[in-house]
Design a binder for these strands. Structure first.
Lengths: 183, 183
DNA sequence: CCGGGAAGTCAACACTTGTTGACAACTGCC
DNA sequence: GGCAGTTGTCAACAAGTGTTGACTTCCCGG
């Protein structure tokens, strides 16, 4: 166990940490190489280009667990998936922060937008069903991302210091309202 | 009336459009100068630096109208201020998009975070009053920004094509739930 | 031992960035 | 007209960007 980590894996891990928190354009390959303790030229060698490295970090994201939850557990699963990473990586960068950090990126924004539509909004609408399923799905995601924005990005004092239980309760409250929306 | 617009004003207007939609680091002074039909060197001359130009675009933002609304109209005012710009500028860039486009910026993120805390979250909590006012204010802003994120940034199909009335009704629904939160 | 391929290092490239200073053109006042 | 002050233009700079190619170093099978 615990076999020595290859330089390629170190680069991928450092890239995930930096790209997923700072955003694609705000990270240079030299930043990544420095964090990985490697040479910047190896990025082009192993991944073809900076863009190739970014896409490599995207390729290993598992599907959102809330989509497989039982209908009664959907709210809990959704709330939990924000405050805790839902992927195997142990660091703080998680797929939600990645989406928010890169939506506005001039080069990767389109890629990220399509991911949200196809991997989150569309499957969630299908799972919800009923009238205005797509609208309610979008509102549920809005509540989820909105609270993430307030807590992690804007770092509002009222939320930043709260416990995991508190933030989950707040998200559940908003998400529940979203699910019940029918004009 | 309609006096000739100075080059300085053209630069400021172009800077607002670009900084407020693409984000500070994703815009170069040459981009701004090109849009304004001026020379990039004039940015440093008139505003001291690129950062000075950005701060000039921030200095003329009026207070959020929802904070002056009657208690009964707060929800309507809040919902309206998202879908329509609440400042005098006629273009599509509004203070909310500015906040979202720059919260993750490596240079201006801190400035923007403090603006949200001091100009939105704190006054809103004071206006709401009652138990957990700061938490409910943060949740209300979370609902507001979350829906803005889904509609304008992620451009979810279920929301992007909706009318102003529809998006306002959705925001009101979530914001109302936020105001009623008490654990 | 030895040759080949992988792994890593380093310098250089073309390009973009913000900023500066020298220079030209124009305006209004004496 | 002559002159000062503003306004605009242009070239250049230092720094940082992604990427490439040549080079050395290491390891392992023959």
């Amino acid at each position: 166990m615990n076999q020595p980590i290859s330089t390629q894996e170190k680069l991928l891990s450092a890239a995930r940490n930096l790209f997923w928190t700072r955003g694609y354009s705000n990270v240079s390959v030299r930043d990544i190489a420095k964090d990985a303790g490697a040479d910047a030229a190896l990025v082009s060698r192993y991944f073809g280009s900076k863009q190739g490295l970014f896409e490599a970090t995207l390729s290993e994201i598992p599907p959102w667990p809330a989509l497989n939850a039982a209908p009664g557990d959907l709210l809990d699963a959704a709330a939990a998936s924000f405050s805790r990473p839902f992927d195997p990586c142990a660091d703080q960068a998680n797929p939600f922060t990645m989406l928010m950090a890169n939506v506005n990126d001039p080069e990767m924004g389109q890629t990220v937008r399509e991911m949200v539509q196809r991997h989150l909004a569309d499957p969630l609408a299908e799972k919800l069903g009923g009238p205005k399923a797509d609208t309610r799905a979008a509102m549920l995601l809005g509540a989820l991302f909105g609270m993430a924005l307030m807590r992690k990005h804007f770092q509002l004092e009222a939320l930043a210091s709260g416990s995991v239980n508190e933030i989950e309760a707040q998200i559940r409250h908003l998400a529940q309202a979203a699910m019940r929306f029918a004009e």
